[in-house]
Amino acid sequence: MEQAEAQEKIVTALTKKLKTKSKFYFNDLAKILELKPRVAKKYITQMVVDQALEYWSSGSTSMYGLPGTGKQAGAEHEE
C-alpha cells in the first residue's frame, strides 16, 4: 500500500466517525488499514510525522486523532 492510500483510508474513516468519537486506539487504526500491527505502525508513524494524525495521551494510554479535533483540542489551545 502507498503511504497516500493509507492516509486517505485513515482520514476518511476517522472523519466519518467524528460525530461520536475523536480519539482512536492504535488497534482501531490497524483494523482500518487491514494490516498487522507492526506493518500498520510504519504508515501510522509517518502520518504523525506528516501531521495527518496527532497523538493524545492520558499518561497511561495513548490514542490517535485527526489534528485539531475533539473537545480537548479547543481547551488545550486556549491561552
Partner: peptide
C-alpha cells in the same frame, strides 16, 4: 486537574503528560 492531552515533543508519542 484535567489530566491528559495532545502536548508532547514532535515525533514522540510519550514522555510528556498534559495536565491543566
Amino acid at each position: 486537574w484535567k489530566h491528559g492531552g495532545i502536548v508532547g515533543v514532535f515525533g514522540y508519542g510519550g514522555g510528556v503528560i498534559g495536565r491543566y
